[in-house]
Nucleic acid binder design. Structure first.
Ligand code: FES
Ligand code: FES
Lengths: 159, 159
DNA sequence: AAAATACTTGACAGATTTAGTCAGGTTTGT
DNA sequence: ACAAACCTGACTAAATCTGTCAAGTATTTT
């Protein structure tokens, strides 16, 4: 039940992009430095977010990435789904799952369990918008790259 | 955001043990057959559940496993925690996490997010008891080993 | 037009985790 | 004593994760 770094990095990167909302695109290099994420890896992540319609890219000098919608319309759930795939605790609860290799419906005791829990997770993820994050973070500007760098060097724990 | 087979098999195995509640121990071989789980692998799983105080073992002939508490006092959350470790979306939200390599507290934007979501997940998991599962399953006895066997052979999807 | 900036895409590899096997051992009822 | 049944730890193959790398394509500034 851990999140992969993709999801965690994605939220952190989007947080930076969201902070820049309304001020034009933010360069990927800038994001990578502020959040101490490998630039090459970040490219992969941002590309996925682009395909999911969460961010838009502006090419050429002074280009970068910007939010495709207002922070209030972007939830953590959107990001996690884009980066980690659909929230389904079991394979047969995924959207396109076939009946083959699966009890489906009332025959399967476990299905109801994982389905119910999955719904709660989505609810929780979708209840948090980037607007809220921005508001919560307003003013506090203590997450300096240097600090983050030390953490990443330590190896474990960064979220 | 997938569950590992440990968690899924664990719930299925415990479901069988719970069905036998009050009727003495159930042999591991029996469980493995009914749920089509590899016997050797199941040993690992049951051992963990034993260490977690969820089941008790009876050794010797006619031995087996039985629930250590009443089905109404056993939740899916107990099982998942025992088999997949503490529910913590990020490493630094685990119980014994140190401050080293981690912002902790209000400095970290992401912390609140993953913490809040984690709580909701625990809530959902802990709201489902095996009593409920037994009740729901009462009478329906259509999950035959043969059927499950076909599913497992199919490779994907069993939950 | 050329150069600079920045995004795009796909292949690849090392580390880690998962899923499962195996080979013994120990305990206990008959 | 014997057999049924659990106990334990080591081991491995496969999958996934976490990045890296290299060679593109697109856009804007000068
Ligand atoms: S890095 Fe540990 S709380 Fe965020
Ligand atoms: S096996 Fe697919 S719903 Fe349970």
């Amino acid at each position: 039940m851990k999140l992969s770094t993709k999801g965690k990095y994605g939220v952190r990167a989007l947080f930076e992009i969201a902070r820049n909302y309304g001020k034009g695109p933010l360069a990927i290099k800038e994001i990578a430095e502020r959040q101490q994420i490998s630039l090459s890896y970040l490219e992969q992540i941002l590309h996925r977010l682009g395909k999911a319609g969460i961010i838009e890219s502006v090419r050429g000098p002074h280009g970068g990435y910007e939010l495709a919608r207002k922070p209030v319309e972007l939830t953590i759930g959107d990001v996690v789904r884009a980066l980690e795939g659909p929230i389904a605790l079991s394979h047969c609860l995924e959207p396109g799952a076939t009946t083959d290799g699966c009890y489906q419906a009332e025959d399967c005791v476990a299905r109801m369990v994982w389905s119910k829990v999955g719904e709660k997770i989505e609810e929780a993820l979708d209840s948090i918008t980037f607007e809220q994050l921005l508001r919560q973070y307003h003013g506090k500007d203590r997450e300096h790259p240097a600090h983050r760098k030390k953490l990443v060097a330590a190896g474990k724990g960064a979220c």
